[in-house]
Each structure stands twice: as C-alpha cells, then as structure tokens.
Computed example of a mutant assay.
Amino acid sequence: MNCAKLFGGRFYGPLAQANVVANMLFGAISGSGVAAAAAVGGTISPIEEKEGYDKKFSAAVNICSAPTGMLIPPSNTLIVYSTVAGSVSVSALFIAGYIPGILWGIGVMIVAAIMAKKLKYKSETQNSFKEGIKVVLDAVPSLLLILIVIGGILKGVFTATEGSAIAVVYSLFLSFVYKEMKLSDLPKIFLSSAQMTAIVIFMIGVSSIMSWGMSFAHIPQKIAEMLLGITDSKIVILIIMNILLLIIGTFMDPTPAVLIFTPIFLPIVQSFGMTPVHFGIMLVFNLCIGTITPPVGPILFTGCKVGRVTIEEVFKWLLPFYLITIIILLVVTFVPSFSLVLPELFGLIK
C-alpha cells in the first residue's frame, strides 16, 4: 500500500489512486478481482473515510479497479478459457493480459483524478528521493511474491492453483516478519475469509443456475446462428459480439460464461482471422465489466460490502468508469497488437 501510494500520490485523490495501483498489484498475486476488492478495499476504505473521502467515491474506485486482477496475470478466468479453447498457451494468455489490464487501470486512474479534482482531493506532498527508495525497498519482499508466482507459473515449476497456495504461505510468513499479525488474529481472519467466500460462492451458484437455464433453452446456439445470419462483416460481428458479452456478463459469472460461450464464439472469430489469444483477452475483458455491473456483479457486491455503501448509492458514481472501460474494450478489440505484442516478443506465439 505504501508503495502504491508513492506512485498514486502524485495525482488528485492520492488514496484513490493508491487503491487502483494496489488492486493492480494485488491482481498480479491473487488472479481474482473479488479478492482484490475485498482485501485492498477493506484496507484502504477506512483510511479514506478518515481522510474525508466520500464513501461512494472510494467504493466506486475500488470496485472499478478490482477487475484488473482478472486480466493481469495470473488470471483464474484466463486459465478456464485456455482449458476450453483447446491448444492455447496459458503463458501466452497471461502475458497478453498485461497491457489490457494496465490500460484498464490507467483509465480508472484518469477518471478518478478528474472526479477527485472536482471533489478537491489534492495530491500529497511528494516524498524525497531517499524516502521513495526506502518505501520501495520496504515493499520488495511483498513485491517478490509477484515474481515468485508469475515466474513459477511461466517456468512450469507449479500450476496456477498451486501458485495461489504458495502465495498464501509466503504472505502468512511476511505478515509475521512485518509484525502485522499475531497468531491470535488467525481465527478472526478465517471467519472473515469464510464470510467473504460464502458471498462469492453464493453469487457463482446463482449465475450457474442461470447458465444451466440458458444452455437448456439452447440460447447460445441461437445467438451464434443470429450473428452469422445478420452480416459477414468482421467489424459488425465483433461489435455485436461485444454487446452480447456485456449483456451476458451482467447475468452470469465469468467462469460459466467462458465455459458456455467460448465454443460458440471462438470458431466464428477464427473464421475471419482473429487469434485465440486475442479473442480470449476480448472475452475476459467483457466479462470483467460484467463483474462490476448489476444485477449479478460479484465485485460490485463485494466492493459495496467492504465500502459500507449500497448499490443504489454508488451506481451513479460508477457510470464514468463504465464509459472509460468500454472505450478501452473497443481499443483492445480492434487493435490486436495491444494483446499480441508481448506474447510475440516472448516467442509464445508466432
């Protein structure tokens, strides 16, 4: 958090900017947007409230920046997509998610800065070079977790699931090293984790029922037939596909949505030359937006809970962030290099 604040503090609304940077860093550890919203939001929201930040503004920033963890590797959703799509490298998908995920974060920071300027949340006094170096060095043991998890997955030392377990053990070790936690705190932590997990599992369960209903009614197949029957224009098909995925994402959890719609949409986009890696990033980006929109947005519900606000209260604050993420989605969709340049650079795709 201190390291995130060092970089975020240069802009209007420094604590909100730190929230965005911290969510991006946390996403590079957990691979889960819900986990980022709960952990980072639960840490920074009380600090923001103490500093006089509007709770609705703080919650909106936390909610809309948390999905970056589903694009910045390791990403649980990209792992699911890799499994369904067939011979698509998880490593290639992970590396491909960096630029779109960072673009999302930058977009949220820009909107947050504009809103913070209107709310008169000024930037903080800058640290001296010496102080900045100390903050970064203090954060190195924590930031090493990103290197350990991503490096281990890319090198094939362990799977993404095993990497998450290693992250928990390493984080537990650091919490004792930093003297941030005592053994007596563990029962409370377990209870809090169980409560938050219960909410997430319930949301996934409800969306899974919805996905079963859609499959039973053959809705995905009808969507594919409709798409191909309307036009043969690549641009029009991609726009329609994005609209459909945005709508689907508002009702379904990303995991069942990927399982259902990848086999339907992937052959269509491959027919006009879109690579599976590029499509995977576009698909997950769409579904990430769905996690922060009602009525079935797990990150939206989690962010509201930790921010102690209602969906009705925070919704109008979310609208500018929705707009910027959709603009970035269109850029990612129609400019393949944003998704493909890094995998090509690392030799993961040709």
Rank of each mutant, 00 (worst) to 15 (best):
C3R: 13
A4P: 10
K5D: 12
A22R: 08
A22C: 10
A22K: 13
N23Q: 13
L25N: 10
L25F: 14
G27C: 02
A28W: 10
V40A: 03
N62M: 01
C64E: 01
S65D: 00
M70E: 01
I72N: 00
S75H: 03
T77F: 07
Y81V: 02
Y81I: 02
G86I: 02
L93P: 02
P100M: 00
G101Y: 00
G101S: 02
W104F: 03
G105V: 00
I106P: 06
V111D: 01
A112E: 03
K117W: 07
K118H: 02
L119G: 01
K120E: 05
K120G: 05
K122P: 04
T125V: 10
S128L: 03
G132Y: 14
K134D: 02
K134Y: 08
V136M: 09
P141V: 13
L145M: 13
I146D: 11
L147G: 11
I148Y: 12
V149C: 10
G151W: 15
I153T: 14
L154Q: 14
L154M: 12
F158E: 15
E162P: 06
I166K: 14
F173D: 02
S175E: 08
Y178K: 08
M181V: 12
K182T: 05
S184A: 14
P187K: 09
K188I: 09
F190I: 14
F190C: 00
S192N: 15
S193C: 07
I199M: 08
I199F: 09
I201K: 13
I204P: 06
S215A: 13
A217E: 04
H218P: 06
I223V: 10
A224H: 13
M226G: 11
L228T: 15
D232Q: 07
S233F: 07
I239G: 05
L245I: 09
L246N: 12
G249L: 03
P256C: 06
I260S: 05
F261G: 06
P263R: 09
M274T: 15
V284Q: 03
N286K: 12
T291M: 12
P295A: 04
V296Q: 10
I299Y: 05
I299D: 00
G303A: 04
C304Y: 14
K305F: 09
G307P: 03
V309R: 08
E312I: 09
L323N: 13
S337T: 13
F338T: 11
S339D: 01
S339W: 12
E344S: 10
E344M: 11
L348W: 12
